[in-house]
Design a binder for these strands. Structure first.
Length: 552
RNA sequence: GUCCCUGUAGCUCAGCUGGACAGAGCGGCUGCCUUCUAAGCAGCGGGUCGAGGGUUCGAAUCCCUCCAGGGACUCCA
């Protein structure tokens, strides 16, 4: 990328200046190239001389002068100049910028793809909600974040696998099954009560009725324990169907659905525990089996196997990550967890150390909570109690594209209010539609061109020299950098901001530059630019998992 | 009590591993549709960047203390 190339040029210039004695010898920090906020400062800039001033015992401005004298400019750059208090600025050549339009057209849908990943195998695990109830908004956030990251990492040259971890055993599943059994009995006019720590939501009743419709009252004749365990199977399968269905509404699709129980049938659990044991991290105390995380710098130990002999969620998760790293051998694993799992992160890092893996291979994104509200009123989403608003209802009310856009527009670090009233009220002026409208506008221009049978394949892009045109091109060629940045930082929220910015620049161009006009040569050139804009806009929308409408 | 996240314009949020006058959307106020989509464009107004110290040539950004909101500290997941 041009940015890296400039950094290299600068570095070489410094070295050369040092060799010639123009600059004092000093260790060089990494040369950073940035985009100045103010366009008057050029396309790229570096504050490198400012940082070197002390070590070189020279004024930043003087250093900048020396460096710029020694620099060999890459062909894309028009000029380099020095600005106080010691910046080195670069401006791109207008004729090079216009040829970038051709590059975009040539790359087509692949424009923006980069080779950061070098085909490294990355597993992205997200959502992984207990199959004991429908998804709510908070889960939607994780789903959108994860699927978008998967899109971007794929575009960045990683081999990505998306996985959903199904917690299909353990205490919560038992609570769920008992609750379901109670509702099942109630629906068949039997006395029964949902356990206090069970699931009280109405969806359990619907589920019970559905099972009755399909399988009748056959569970009544089974012994209590058998009925519960069979209903657990049926109930979990049905909840998973609902979850899959809801995720599909947001265009979230997984490659692998991984069952927690399979870790026990497949021996991963035994092998992982054996490994920890032989490494000396497993101790027996207080009637339970513990992972001695305190010896790895944690503030306390954690239970692996309870007094009653049942393994904890933590033990399963150890077996699961053992499987991810040592059996499936992913180069990198990214887990997206809710804020309530934040305390789990250092534990899992400690586990990796114990398993002789590099903790850096595991990246955990903690996604802060979502509060759902309608104006002032906070809407409850808890699964275990009373009335809830499901993700499905939110999507149906707000629409999948606005949902995705809203979820993506905030960094995972910050908690968000999802205001249904606002989301719907804003619809008309929603940034979502603003971006999509730009795409639809483009489609409309291209339709007109087609209707008039304008062949712009031979358009001459060197005619694209006006200010709105070059501003637009400058934005278009930012796409690979945005992709890189999102892939590197694992922060997809930069995408919607870029999309919006691009749309703004396009709308402005549209207003100032008539595309299909009397001037045939200019028309052909501008149609190329418009087509390139469509490719980039559609690409960003696709990365965000949103639709790129031809008409609105 | 310990740990994690957050605190930037009336509201919702960006601010790229310290940089050149602090940005966007919404809301408010002005203008702009006989030509490719006005779900648009152009402009105005609006901020002691939670508070106080510190590091630095330079801090919204890094360090410390404090304040406020949220979350985690279960043989729950």
């Amino acid at each position: 990328m041009l940015r890296q190339e400039l950094a290299r040029c600068l570095q070489q210039a410094v070295l050369k200046a040092q060799q010639e004695g123009a600059l004092a010898a000093a260790a060089l920090p990494e040369v950073l190239i940035e985009h100045p906020q103010n366009p008057e400062h050029g396309d790229f800039a570096s504050g490198f001389p400012l940082r070197m001033a002390r070590a070189m015992r020279m004024s930043p401005l003087a250093i900048a002068e020396k460096v710029s004298q020694h620099i060999v400019l890459p062909p894309q750059v028009d000029k380099v100049w020095v600005a106080p208090p010691g910046f080195i600025n670069f401006t791109l050549r207008e004729d090079w910028l216009s040829t970038e339009v051709e590059s975009i057209l040539a790359a087509g849908e692949a424009y923006g793809n980069i080779d950061l990943g070098k085909s490294k195998r990355v597993q992205l695990e997200f959502v992984s909600v207990n199959p004991t109830g429908p998804l709510h908004v908070g889960h939607g956030r994780g789903a959108v974040l994860g699927s978008t990251l998967a899109n971007v990492l794929t575009a960045s040259g990683y081999a990505v696998e998306k996985e959903y971890y199904i917690n299909d055993m353990g205490t919560q599943i038992t609570n769920f099954a008992r609750s379901l059994y109670a509702r099942y009995q109630q629906c068949l006019s039997k006395e029964a009560a949902v356990p206090p720590d069970g699931y009280h939501g109405n969806y359990i009743i619907d589920l019970a009725n559905e099972i009755i419709q399909e399988q009748g009252d056959r569970f009544l004749s089974l012994p209590n324990g058998e009925a519960v365990s069979q209903l657990a199977e049926v109930g979990v399968a049905k909840m998973l169907q609902t979850i899959k269905h809801d995720l599909k509404l947001l265009d979230v699709v997984f490659d692998v659905w991984f069952s927690e129980r399979s870790l026990y049938r497949g021996g991963q659990y035994d092998r992982a525990m054996e490994l920890l044991q032989s490494a000396g991290y497993v101790v027996q105390k207080a009637n339970a089996t513990w992972f001695e995380s305190s010896s790895l710098g944690e503030d306390k130990d954690n239970v692996l196997v309870r007094g009653d002999g049942s393994p904890t969620y933590f033990a399963s998760d150890i077996a699961y990550h053992y499987n991810k790293f040592l059996e499936r051998k992913f180069d990198e694993v990214i887990d997206i967890w809710g804020a309530d799992h934040q305390g789990h992160v250092p534990r899992m890092k400690a586990v990796l150390k114990a398993l002789q893996c590099d903790p850096e291979q595991l990246k955990v994104i903690i996604c802060q909570l979502v509060t759902l509200r309608r104006g002032e009123e906070i809407v409850k989403v808890s699964k275990r109690s009373g009335d809830i608003i499901t993700l499905q209802e939110v999507i149906e009310e707000v629409g999948p594209d606005p949902c995705r856009f809203i979820f993506l527009s905030r960094s995972a670090d910050s908690q968000m209010d999802f205001d249904m009233e606002l989301a719907k009220k804003q619809s008309a002026d929603n940034p979502v539609y603003y971006v999509q409208y730009a795409h639809a506008r483009i489609a409309s221009i291209l339709r007109l061109a087609k209707q008039r049978e304008i062949d712009y394949s031979q358009g001459d892009v060197s005619l694209l020299t006006s200010e709105p045109e070059s501003t637009l091109i400058r934005r278009l060629i930012l796409l690979p950098e945005i992709v890189e940045r999102v892939a590197f930082s694992l922060e997809p929220h930069h995408l919607p901001y870029y999309a919006q910015d691009l749309a703004t620049v396009f709308h402005s161009f549209y207003k100032q530059c008539r595309v299909v006009s009397e001037d045939e040569a200019l028309t052909r050139a501008r149609l190329k630019l418009v087509k390139a804009s469509q490719l980039v806009l559609a690409k960003v929308l696709r990365l965000m998992g949103m639709s790129a409408p031809e008409k609105m």
